[in-house]
Design a protein around this nucleic acid. Structure first.
Lengths: 352, 352
DNA sequence: CTGTTAGCGCCTTCAC
DNA sequence: GTGAAGGCGCTAACAG
């Protein structure tokens, strides 16, 4: 029964206790523990030992109160359960932890929570910086965040005026289309996201733009009815593919799915229709989802964990002033994408 | 250009400013804002309006320093990218947010990080409670956490002496096996996790135990070589299924996959071998993963989000003293599982 | 190199 | 019903 008391006492030992035990003043303890200059080696050792024995750790509350820093970073995102977000969070957490920062999660999964977040600003005074993941902010929302006076960075969705870490969505789409074109496909469709809805994600627009540009460059025409909304979910992809197959005027032989999860759904719709992949229809996804390998889906891989980690490192460098304080804070960093060849794409079927 | 200054000023208004503006003392402001008794209606309204006008919000640091509460809960887990964990986190975050608590994430993805976590205890004084998700703690690790004197709860993996939220893993396995038995299967294999490794997860052991018990009850024999390790990943499931198929002595007609992700892998292995599901081999998974519907995998569904949310609510009720303070803190709460019938299971093939 | 002292912003007795 | 004052635990001048 000594564990609990010891531990409990430990978390309650204050800087005064350490000072007494080491026979120095609290100021010296504070300096010694933070590796500041002007502390003799002997004193420092004594303090360190005392702190060790008392299991002392400075209260972040107290030090935060005076320094204004709390060593934690807020992460705001619209969903938490989806693969993409989980991976981004993983990258952010690891990078922050490496620098001794905590990650505080804020999921604004619907309009209500989103409004609450920007009105009550639960991050106020609780974080040193904010990362906005895949959430296209309204101008006024961005301004509210800016009013906090903290380093801000965007991941996956660009936010005007903020530092950002993304992939080149235009190039991503082009890579996918060019791959299909190279295989001889000419009848190519795109399964993307909502282009006009209230959420205003820019990713579907950018990828669809790249799709159109690449088609034009290849001298191919885009059928408007072959640009369908798959809502970036597997279920949505299945519906979208089903819709494509039910259209008159023949079906596409190649489909650019703007996310792997939509490709999974499309795969199911094709199988159910008795069509073979890739003999009848080829599918390219985007992401390199962990299950894409299992389901043999050709994809444009993007470094998801790395984007999160890079954003985390950027705000940390701002906070630690290791970065030039006068450096622009609205530069974006583009991460590379690459084609991962798997079994869902093949030569276009010969026409009859 | 009034936005930013306003915002910046807003986050800096202190209780003194509110007191001045309302023409009362800080003590009254404090009382009024926290709905305490002994404040006249008129005064309270005046204070509320002043606070509103100044966009005042109490600094959690300062109030935490005096009350000892920081309104945040730490979540410790071994992986962050996997579906299961992402869902649990989602449930926890939502429940915590409903009560005004922040979620601070701690991923201990390897032995090093795990050791660091328990040695430096970065949660010390930074959270009011800790949730341990799917992480079987060593006794001494549990004792270290207990030493913090905070409410503790376990999710998905039982931890001796702690409150927990789980499913009945034994019943889960039985349900799966009974379903196969009901379909006439007698040659049943299990793809699970590591039973003897250093990680000591109890879930694979419990599910394998349930598998064996259900087999025995059905009068069926378990072939030792038909209990294989799929590492709880899709890739592992694929390897495991491949191994099952390459064994001499015939193949199983029914396979209990202890997670849906392993079932996905198994599905791929079967397809590649030219076997049909469910005509040749039936597959049951566990989880009801979001993609199980797309890939038509019969599964034993467990409420993942609900387990996380329940754990979060439990620690909050402890913190808010809405729960009996003398109530035992090591009771476990079992969540229901249910069979979700899909296309990966069917009648056992007739023997030749 | 080290100690003293004044807050950081808030809550909480204790008087009134 | 309200105000004054003393910390909570720590850091940051300022002295020495």
């Amino acid at each position: 029964m000594t564990e609990a008391p010891t531990g409990a006492a430990a978390s309650r030992a204050s800087i005064v206790d350490v000072a007494q035990r080491a026979g120095v003043s609290v100021a010296t303890v504070s300096r010694a523990l933070r590796d500041m200059p002007n502390v003799s080696k002997a004193t420092r050792d004594r303090v360190l030992r005392a702190a060790q024995e008392l299991q002392y750790a400075a209260s972040p509350l107290a030090s935060g109160l005076v320094t204004g820093r709390v060593r934690s970073v807020g992460v705001v995102l619209p969903y938490a359960g989806r693969w993409f977000f989980a991976e981004v969070i993983r990258g952010i957490e690891e990078a922050l932890r490496d620098h001794g920062y905590d990650l505080v999660l804020h999921v604004v999964s619907d309009a209500q929570r989103r409004a609450d977040f920007f009105e009550s600003l639960p991050v106020r005074r609780r974080v040193d910086a904010i990362l906005v993941v895949a959430l296209p902010l309204e101008d006024h929302e961005r301004d509210i965040l800016r009013g906090l006076g903290l380093p801000l960075a965007a991941v996956a969705e660009p936010i005007k005026g903020l530092h950002g870490e993304f992939v080149d969505n235009d190039a991503t789409a082009r890579l996918a289309v060019q791959h299909l074109v190279n295989l001889g496909h000419t009848r190519i469709a795109s399964i993307g996201g909502d282009l006009h809805g209230p959420e205003r994600f820019s990713v579907p627009g950018l990828r669809t733009g790249g799709f159109r540009a690449a088609m034009a460059e290849a001298g191919l025409t885009v059928r408007p009815e072959w640009e369908v909304d798959g809502r970036f979910t597997a279920a949505g992809g299945e519906l979208a593919m089903t819709a494509l197959l039910s259209q008159k005027g023949g079906r596409p032989t190649g489909v650019f799915c703007q996310s792997d999860e939509m490709a999974f759904g499309a795969l199911k719709a094709l199988r159910r229709s008795g069509l073979r992949v890739p003999e009848d229809v080829s599918l390219v996804g985007v992401d390199d989802h962990e299950l894409s390998d299992v389901f043999d889906v050709t994809t444009i891989a993007q470094p998801v964990v790395a984007q999160g980690a890079a954003a985390a490192r950027w705000v940390v460098s701002r906070l630690e002033r290791t970065a030039d304080p006068d450096a622009p804070d609205d530069e974006v960093c583009l991460h590379p994408v690459r084609l991962v060849l798997r079994g869902s794409t093949g030569p276009a079927p010969t026409e009859h």
